[in-house]
Design a binder for these strands. Structure first.
Lengths: 190, 190
DNA sequence: CTAATCATGTAAGGCGTTACATGATTTT
DNA sequence: AAAATCATGTAACGCCTTACATGATTAG
């Protein structure tokens, strides 16, 4: 009976305005998708559960396909449930950082190959940081850096994204440097 | 048939020396547990699968309880499988950052309550950073900052831990400051 | 005419969590 | 005498991923 994090995530999205399930799939990609993801197949059953709990209502209209198109809107009960959940300390979710697992066991692989991995990851994080910074600049221009702005949530989460990607990029570069031979391997010259 | 990340994590641990399943449960807690976790109930079936694949072998001895105590050791095939997997780019795992979900929907809750949440989290991250820094200092003293050291993997992952906790702490403090009233609410003095 | 977009669902299977179950040895 | 530690497993349930299934409208 209790609502999952995905349920609250969707509630948070619908608190900004009514949407279809299809809309939610798209809205969950950016920027929330950087922090929580869900497959399309999870959305529709979850919408059903939230509606059954009275946190959402929907209006059905004839849709493009064989089924009806349903537009969901949050109810007062839904808003209340969200407002109760938000200030609660987050439950600790299982960390899943595969690169750190590899790093822990780094001694078990070839150093040059591992260095290449960290260089690749460093570049990937740099690219992502640049992307996030651009989005952040756009939001700033739109005034979303002010807490009262309706998209301040987007701004704040993206700020975390930038900080994270930069930190990660630096760590990967540090790691690659550590794995660089102090004197590069050449033909033996005693 | 393919080996899960947990399987490789356990292989990485056993690459350092033979252990029982019980040992692995403990070893998975620190520092790997900061980046990947598993329940005890996952360990034993996984050990069975790895042994069946020929990546591990075990010696059985009479144990304290009703069952035999099995000590697992990595095989050459196991070492080879690990060495192949390590330099591969990590698969992207579903992000699960509940605090960012809450942040995205921050407008839906009372600002003072949310500020209290971010302050609590800021303190928690500061404590964790201090803990990690102490562990890191101990490893440094033991010489684990050198890539050839057998516990360099511990050192490198902890370094990420410190950077992460500091970054996170700063962000939480920033967020709390943002939610602080520019002029605190008093009795109206028009 | 073909492909993409809009739109909603179901089914099978894997992974992970919580809880249950047993029992000897060592520490308090 | 009680509690913690050592030690290995099973069962039920839920969440998530992958894949399947349908079909109208719009864009190229």
């Amino acid at each position: 009976m209790s609502i999952s994090v995905l349920g609250y995530t969707m509630l948070g999205l619908l608190a900004r305005g009514p949407h279809t399930g299809y809309d939610l799939v798209r809205l969950l990609r950016r920027p929330i998708g950087y922090y929580w993801t869900a497959q399309q197949s999870q959305i529709y059953p979850q919408l059903g559960r939230l509606a059954q709990a009275g946190l959402l209502v929907f209006e059905a209209a004839s849709g493009p396909g064989p089924r009806e198109k349903k537009t969901y809107a949050i109810t007062d009960e839904g808003r209340a449930a969200l407002a109760t959940w938000l200030p609660l300390p987050p439950g600790s979710h299982a960390p899943r950082d595969e690169l750190m697992v590899k790093t822990f066991a780094v001694a078990g692989a070839d150093a040059d190959q591992m260095r290449a991995l960290y260089l690749t990851m460093s570049d990937a994080h740099a690219d992502r940081a640049a992307d996030f910074e651009e989005q952040l600049a756009n939001l700033h221009r739109a005034g979303a850096h002010v807490p009262d702005h309706p998209r301040f949530g987007n701004y704040a989460t993206l700020r975390m994204g930038v900080a994270y990607e930069r930190m990660r990029q630096e760590w990967c570069a540090w790691m690659a440097a550590k794995l660089t031979h102090p004197s590069p391997p050449r033909s033996a010259r005693s």
